Amino acid sequence: MIVRKTLGLRQIYEFGGHHFIWLTGWMLLVSATYHFTQWRWMAIPWLPMSVIGTSVAFYVGFKNHQAYGRLWEARKIWGAMINNSRALGTMVKHFVASDTVNAQVVELAKKRIIHRHIAYLYTLRQQLLAPAPWEHVSLRWIFGSFNRKRHHLLLDIPYQEELAEIAGRPYLEPEEQPLYEGVANKATQLIDRQSADLARLHADGCMNMMQHIELQRMLNNFYDEQGKAERIKRFPFPRHYGSFSFVFVCIFVFLLPFGIVGEFSKLGGDMYWLSVPIGALIGWIFVVMEIVGDYSENPFEGLYNDVPMLSICRTIEIDLLQMMGEKNVPKPIQPRNSVLM
Rank of each mutant, 00 (worst) to 15 (best):
G269P: 04
H115P: 00
L281W: 05
F146N: 10
A187C: 05
R116N: 13
L108S: 12
V329K: 04
H18T: 14
E230F: 00
P131Q: 03
E165L: 15
L198K: 05
E290Q: 15
I166Q: 07
V261C: 01
R239P: 00
F248N: 05
I318L: 07
G302K: 03
N220W: 00
G168C: 05
F246E: 14
I333T: 09
T54M: 15
M323L: 14
H136D: 09
A103V: 11
W46L: 15
V292A: 11
H18F: 15
S275M: 02
M207V: 08
T90L: 15
G293R: 07
L190S: 01
K266R: 15
N185P: 00
T54F: 15
D204K: 14
M207S: 05
G268A: 02
D224I: 11
N208D: 15
F146S: 09
I318R: 09
T100F: 09
S31C: 13
I312A: 03
G144Y: 01
M210Q: 12
F264I: 08
K93R: 15
H35S: 13
V292R: 11
G325H: 02
I282T: 06
T100I: 12
E14S: 14
G205Q: 11
A57P: 06
V292M: 12
L310A: 03
G259D: 02
G205F: 12
V3M: 04
P308W: 06
H18E: 13
G242Q: 10
I118T: 11
V30T: 10
E297N: 12
G17S: 12
Y34C: 02
A167W: 00
R148H: 03
I312M: 07
T315A: 13
A87V: 14
L154D: 01
P299T: 06
R193W: 06
F286L: 10
W78V: 09
K149C: 00
L321G: 01
A280Y: 02
D99P: 00
V276I: 15
K76V: 02
V96M: 13
Q189V: 08
